[in-house]
Simulated scan of single mutants.
Amino acid sequence: MKSEEVIQYLQDNPQFFSEYADILANIHVPHPYDSKVISINERQIITLRDKNRALQDRLLELINFGEENDAIGEKMHRLSIKLLTVSSIDELLEGLNNDLREDFSIPHVALRLWDISCNDMERIEFTVTSEDIHTISESLTYPYCGTHIADEIKNWFGKDASDLQSFSMIPLKVLHPIGLLVLGSPEAKRFYSEMGTLYLKRLGELTSAAFARFDLKTGILKK
C-alpha cells in the first residue's frame, strides 16, 4: 500500500485506533530530535509541546507588536499636541523636525514645501523644487517606502545622501499638494516596500492638518 492509501484508510476508519489500541501502544517511531525510537503516545506529546511552544512564541510576538504600537501611538499623540499648539509655520517646522529626530529616532529628515508663505522664506524647506517633485507628491496616495528615490530628492540630504539605504516619501496636501516629507535611514530594512504605512500616512495627515491651520498665502494663523 502507498502512504497516501494508509492515511486515507485511517481517516476513513477512526475506530481502528480503539479496536487495536494494544497494537498501537507497542508501535515505536523515530524521535524527531534524536536517534532513538519512542512510542506513538510519546510522539504525540512532543508534537503537542512543539505546538504549544509555537503558540507561546506567536503570543510573545503579538505582545511585542502591541507594545511597539502603543509606543508609536504615544509619540504620535505628543507630536499632535505640539503641532496643534504652535502659533507660526516656523514653530511648526521646528517642532516637526525636532520630534522626528529625537522622539522617533529618525536622524535624516528632509522636507520641501511650495505654495506656502512663511516669515522666513530663506529656510531650506522652501528651496525651489522641480515640477517632477510636485508630480511625485500628487501621485502618492500612500507613503512610499523603499530603496529608490529620485536623485533630486536624495540630494536634499546633502553629504549624508551617500550613506542612506532606505527612504519613506510622505505627501503633504491641503486641498492640493503643498510638499513632500522624506525620511531616510542608513539601514536598508528601516523603510521597505512590504512594511505597513498606517503611522506614516497618519504622520502625513497630521502634518498637513497642522499646515491647514494657517493661511497659506500669508503664513498667518487662521482665526
Results as ranks from 00 to 15, higher is better:
Asn155Leu: 08
Asp57Trp: 00
Arg49Glu: 14
Ala110Ile: 03
Val109Thr: 10
Phe126Asn: 03
Thr135Asp: 04
Ile81Phe: 09
Ile136Ser: 04
Leu55Trp: 07
Gly179Phe: 07
Ser137Trp: 03
Arg78Trp: 09
Val37Ser: 12
Phe157Asp: 04
Glu68Met: 09
Trp114Ala: 08
Ile40Leu: 15
Ser168Ile: 04
Asp115Arg: 13
Leu92Met: 06
Gly95Phe: 03
Arg101Glu: 11
Cys145Ala: 15
Glu131Ser: 13
Val128Thr: 12
Asp90Thr: 13
Leu164Gln: 08
Val174Pro: 07
Ser166Asn: 05
Ile81Val: 14
Ser162Gly: 00
Glu91Leu: 09
Arg78Ala: 11
His176Ser: 15
Ala54Tyr: 09
Met169Trp: 01
Leu113Cys: 05
Glu102Trp: 02
Ile124Asn: 00
Ala54Thr: 09
Ser168Gln: 04
Gly179Asp: 06
Thr141Asn: 12
Asp163Tyr: 10
Glu74Cys: 00
Ser168Cys: 15
Arg49Thr: 10
Ser105Ala: 13
Ile170Phe: 09
Arg43Met: 11
Ser166Trp: 03
Asn155Ile: 00
Asp99Tyr: 08
Ser139Arg: 08
Ala54Ile: 14
Asn98Glu: 14
Pro143Glu: 11
Ser130Tyr: 03
Ile46Thr: 03
Asn69Leu: 11
Thr135Glu: 07
Ile46Arg: 03
Lys82Phe: 01
Pro177Ile: 08
Val37Glu: 15
Gly179His: 05
Gln165Cys: 08
Ile116His: 01
Ile106Arg: 07
Glu125Cys: 00
Glu68Leu: 11
Tyr142Glu: 11
Glu125Asn: 04
Ser139Gly: 10
Trp114Ile: 11
Gly66Ala: 09
Ser87Asp: 15
Asn69Cys: 00
Ser87Cys: 05
Leu140Lys: 01
Ala110Glu: 07
Glu138Met: 13
Leu140Asp: 04
Ile63Gln: 13
Ile136Met: 03
Arg123Trp: 02
Thr127His: 02
Asn64Ala: 14
Lys159Trp: 02
Gln44Lys: 11
Asn97Gln: 07
Asp120His: 13
Pro171Cys: 12
Ile89Gln: 06
Thr135Arg: 10
Leu113Asp: 05
Asp70Asn: 02
Ser162Tyr: 06
Asn52Ile: 14
Val128Trp: 02
Met121Trp: 01
Ile136Cys: 04
Thr129Gln: 14
Ile45His: 07
Ala161Arg: 14
Ile133Phe: 01
His176Gly: 03
Ile178Phe: 01
Arg58Gly: 04
Leu84Gln: 12
Glu42Ser: 12
Leu59Tyr: 11
Val109Arg: 02
Asp132Met: 14
Gly179Val: 03
Arg78Thr: 12
Lys154Ile: 01
Ile72Gly: 00
Asp115Cys: 01
His77Ala: 09
Glu74Thr: 10
Leu48Lys: 10
Lys173Cys: 15
Asp99Thr: 10
Thr129Leu: 02
Ser168Pro: 01
Asn97Met: 04
Ser88Arg: 06
Leu79Glu: 05
Ile81Gln: 04
Asp103Thr: 12
His148Phe: 14
Thr127Ile: 04
Ile89Cys: 02
Ile40Phe: 10
Ser137Glu: 12
Lys51Ala: 12
Pro143His: 05
Phe104Ser: 05
